[in-house]
């Protein structure tokens, strides 16, 4: 998901940063996310939708309302289809969304928010979640199968630390596999529990980065896998993705990838190219 700093969002809308904050208070839109440093970042799609709506609006309120509607329509259809177990209609909603967006944007702006909304609305113990989550993962896998074979040098090993297909993080981790695969590098995913024989895998794949993705597996399992990788391949860049408030030791050098799969992909590629410096944790997380 592409994000904008406050100054970039304000520039795109031709308003001041103060006005953006006034809109946030009054309309709760555009609603910024917060970086680790508590800075506001705005979702590009939200700002672009508002810019378009402002162009021929009669008031800020009506422009905000239109912007919200335009963003929700595809998500509404998809959530509605999944909540009512209409898989064909869900496929149709994705087809329609693909007509307006790239695969990455479709996944990030429509599929992932819809799955999150389904989890919020129905709960992850519901039948709707079971059907919807599996459908979403299958959709991403289908898209992955249509990805051309790797053409770029380099490989990424994704260590899957999610529980199963019903794990709320599973869809996002599959999205990361898809996005990284679509960049043309070789991507292989292996469950964290399957650390036996990792040396052979590493020897065959020769990954430049190892991404530990998901928060279900405990730190001990993660550490065991990381040890096996390092024993086989020496010091490789390690990165966490959707690992939550992971605790790492004082001496660890580990990269925290952004929560957005597209941003995480960009950062993983930078790691692969040796352009990104690791985030060094100087103290244990207090949370």
């Amino acid at each position: 998901m592409r994000t904008l700093k406050t100054s970039e969002a304000a520039g795109m809308l031709n308003v001041s940063a103060n006005t953006l904050r006034a809109w946030e208070r009054r309309f709760d839109y555009p609603k910024p996310q917060r970086t680790a440093g508590k800075h506001r970042v705005y979702v590009h799609g939200e700002v672009a939708a508002l810019r378009d709506a402002l162009r021929d609006g009669l008031s800020i309120s009506s422009a905000v309302s239109r912007a919200r509607e335009s963003l929700r329509s595809d998500t509404h259809i998809l959530v509605g289809a999944l909540a009512s177990f209409e898989i064909e209609r869900a496929d149709g909603a994705m087809e329609a969304a693909l007509a307006m967006r790239s695969v990455e944007r479709t996944v990030e702006e429509v599929l992932l928010p819809s799955v999150a909304e389904l989890a919020r609305r129905s709960g992850t113990d519901s039948a709707a979640w079971a059907i919807g989550s599996r459908w979403a993962i299958e959709w991403i896998r289908r898209a992955h199968r249509m990805t051309p074979p790797p053409v770029r040098p380099g490989a990424i090993l994704i260590v899957d630390a999610t529980a199963d297909e019903l794990d709320p993080d599973a869809t996002t981790v599959r999205a990361l596999e898809l996005f990284t695969g679509r960049t043309g590098i070789r991507v292989t995913s292996v469950p964290v529990a399957n650390h036996s024989g990792v040396a052979d895998l590493v020897e065959s794949l020769r990954p430049g980065v190892v991404v530990l993705a998901g928060r279900h597996a405990n730190d001990e399992s993660i550490a065991r896998f990381a040890y096996a990788v390092r024993a086989a391949a020496g010091s490789l860049p390690l990165a966490f993705f959707h690992r939550g408030d992971a605790e790492v030791s004082r001496t660890s050098a580990v990269h925290q990838l952004p929560v957005s799969p597209s941003e995480a992909t960009a950062q993983a590629l930078a790691l692969l190219d040796g352009h990104a410096a690791p985030v060094r944790f100087t103290e244990r997380s207090s949370s």
Binding site: N14, S16, R55, S59
Partner: peptide, 15 residues
């Protein structure tokens, strides 16, 4: 076009 937000209150469009 593109700069119709009121610079005084920031809560209205210029008409």
């Amino acid at each position: 076009v593109g700069s119709r937000v009121c610079v005084s209150c920031g809560l209205g469009l210029l008409l």
